[in-house]
Design a protein around this nucleic acid. Structure first.
Length: 206
DNA sequence: GGTAGGATGGGCT
DNA sequence: GCCCATCCTACCC
């Protein structure tokens, strides 16, 4: 972290729009190891899920454009944040060219900066691993809300960056967590053996 | 270590 | 009116 407390100095460049303008599963895999940054808080993405939008009944966009889902049909590199179970919010990043639906759910982070701030936002968390392990937990820890609906994540306070130093990534693929439709599709991506991943870690479909 | 049940509100039929 | 891409607490091994 920089002397001014800014986490950004320690990380690489911001991911640009073409990164997101690709097939959704490909983006979900590529996001592993990147760094989600919001203000002084930052975490390495260790778990994602692809929601391709077409031919996937589990995707919110499967039933067309509504007030909630319109951003998923828009240009890539924007945030889709929605309320779940009336209490929690989940962060997705929009993929594919404008007009084609698709987004990636960010499911878990390994905190790397602003950890004290994250702890304040997550009083229920005990161990470091619990701060941002889970889609609802990570939005709380990072201070991400529905106010970020539609936010451009290629510029501004909420962005995704290259890591400070690239490392070799062992990636596992599994079914997505907690859905009924299309339950078998291997669209969840995790960093193998990472302690900050939520849910099942043993399933290997690669 | 594990799981059952409640919280809580927007979206859509 | 029903369904959630969830989390926390209490309680039980």
């Amino acid at each position: 972290m920089g002397e001014d407390g800014s986490a950004m100095l320690a990380f690489g460049p911001i991911l640009k729009r073409p990164f997101y303008q690709r097939p959704t599963a490909e983006v979900a895999r590529a996001l592993l190891g990147k760094v989600l940054v919001h203000g002084a808080a930052a975490g390495i993405i260790v778990e994602t899920e692809a929601y391709p939008g077409r031919d996937d009944l589990a995707s919110h966009s499967a039933r067309g454009i509504t007030r909630r889902t319109r951003v998923i049909f828009g240009p890539p590199g924007h945030a889709y944040v929605y309320l779940i179970y009336g209490i929690y919010e989940c962060l997705n990043l929009v993929t594919e060219p404008a007009g084609t639906p698709g987004c990636v759910l960010i499911r878990a982070l390994e905190p790397v900066a602003g950890i004290e701030l994250m702890r304040q936002r997550r009083p229920a968390a005990g161990k470091l691993e619990d701060i941002a392990r889970g889609p609802g937990r990570l939005t709380m820890a990072m201070g991400i809300t529905r106010d970020h609906y539609g936010a451009d994540v290629t510029r501004g306070s909420l962005v995704v960056r290259e890591p400070a130093e690239p490392r070799a990534l062992e990636i596992q693929v599994t079914p997505r967590v907690g859905i009924r439709a299309c339950a078998e599709r291997p669209l969840r991506f995790i960093l193998q053996g990472n302690r900050f991943v939520s849910g099942p870690r043993g399933f290997v479909a690669l």
